[in-house]
Write a protein that binds this DNA or RNA. Structure first.
Length: 204
DNA sequence: CTAAAGATGTCCT
DNA sequence: GGACATCTTTAGA
């Protein structure tokens, strides 16, 4: 089997214990990890270079701020699951759930650096420039074929979508900034990105 | 039931 | 820098 999921111990999925911690901490530590998507015909990989933390009752920008709803229920469940939501009538965004079960939290994956399956990503995105493939939250879900069908998917046991450590990767130089596209909670600096990486969606 | 906003991307000027 | 596409979800009447 060529699946990186079981290639060896150091490339197994991040554990539930990793995800089940403070959301801001998890958001920072996800930088440099590898997002893996296995399709029937191809395997897609990308290095996570930009994330944002969203918590619960203390975070007015969060979908979970006003409590449990049908849409955000995954944010309140076990950590290590995919929270995928549909927005602006046409886009999907991918988050990973955090904090202990019962406590809301999720990290939005905002950008990845394409690593494998670039031809497939180009086909899905209908663009030629590699830099345009996954430098934004809705761009990467399109490139990685992530839709609402994956909402609630367990990233720690699933084989079609998961996140692994990057073996040959030095610790990224992490920068923080204000979260993008929100109206409330703008003062929190809960956006994290790898300094200088060209696939970060925006920089300042 | 109705309305308005939305964790965005693309194209245009 | 701004318009606009497009539709689900949520809040409020």
């Amino acid at each position: 089997m060529t699946s990186p999921h079981r290639a060896n111990k150091s490339t197994t999925s991040l554990t539930r214990a990793f995800y089940g911690r403070n959301t801001v901490k998890v958001a920072k530590e996800l930088l440099g990890k590898i997002l893996v998507r296995e399709l029937h015909t191809s395997m897609l990989e990308g290095i996570i270079v930009e994330t944002e933390a969203y918590r619960g009752y203390d975070d007015p920008a969060s979908h979970a701020y006003r409590g449990l709803t049908k849409r955000n229920e995954v944010m309140f469940c076990e950590p290590g699951h995919a929270y995928v939501y549909f927005t602006y009538g046409m886009h999907y965004c991918l988050n990973v759930t955090t904090e202990p079960a019962g406590q809301a939290g999720a990290v939005l994956i905002r950008a990845v650096q394409p690593l494998k399956g670039i031809a497939e990503m180009k086909r899905r995105r209908r663009v030629e420039q590699i830099k345009d493939l996954s430098n934004g939250p809705a761009k990467l879900t399109q490139a990685f074929a992530v839709t609402k069908a994956l909402n609630g998917h367990d990233l720690t046991t699933g084989k079609t979508l998961f996140i692994v450590r990057n073996l040959h990767h030095q610790e990224p130089d992490i920068r923080s900034g204000n979260r993008i596209g929100i109206r409330a909670g703008v003062e929190k600096r809960w956006r994290f990105f790898t300094r200088g990486n060209p696939f970060v969606s925006k920089r300042w």
